[in-house]
């Protein structure tokens, strides 16, 4: 079992607001992130796939295919988008880094060409990242 990680970057904006809560509660829980005009992040995405090394190619998975898949399924739909307003997963969900990482996992799951999606790691800033390992 070898683990292969491919990195990618995208920029997106969002704000945190739960319509079921009062404005005061939203402000208390989400602070600056509650500003309805939103704010942006330069996200760094790391996708790790696991698999046995193919004897013929020496690959776990063709890196070019992984890169194309990440671009097609994730980057094209998220890069330079307002997550709350433009991305369907966040119509009824707060676009926290947790929820965004889960949405990215769901976009990639089952599309790994024989390899296994092992981990989605999403950095919102250098100091903050979320790991999703999907279902055990």
């Amino acid at each position: 079992m070898v683990y292969l990680t491919r990195k990618s970057e995208f920029s997106a904006s969002h704000f945190y607001h739960n319509p079921k809560l009062s404005p005061e509660e939203n402000q208390r829980i989400f602070g600056k992130c509650n500003n309805p005009h939103g704010h942006g992040h330069n996200y760094t995405l790391e996708v790790t796939v696991a698999g046995e090394v193919d004897e013929r190619s020496g690959f776990v998975m063709d890196l070019k295919k992984l890169k194309d898949l990440m671009n097609r399924e994730v980057i094209e739909g998220l890069d330079h988008r307002h997550l709350n307003k433009e991305v369907p997963e966040f119509r009824d969900k707060i676009p926290t880094t947790e929820n965004l990482a889960i949405a990215i996992w769901n976009r990639l799951a089952g599309k790994m060409n024989g390899a296994k999606l092992h981990r989605v790691r999403l950095y919102e800033t250098d100091d903050l990242f979320v790991d999703v390992y999907g279902e055990p």
Partner: peptide
């Protein structure tokens, strides 16, 4: 800087 590999 974009690709890494792990073996345990």
């Amino acid at each position: 800087m974009m690709n890494s590999f792990e073996y345990a």
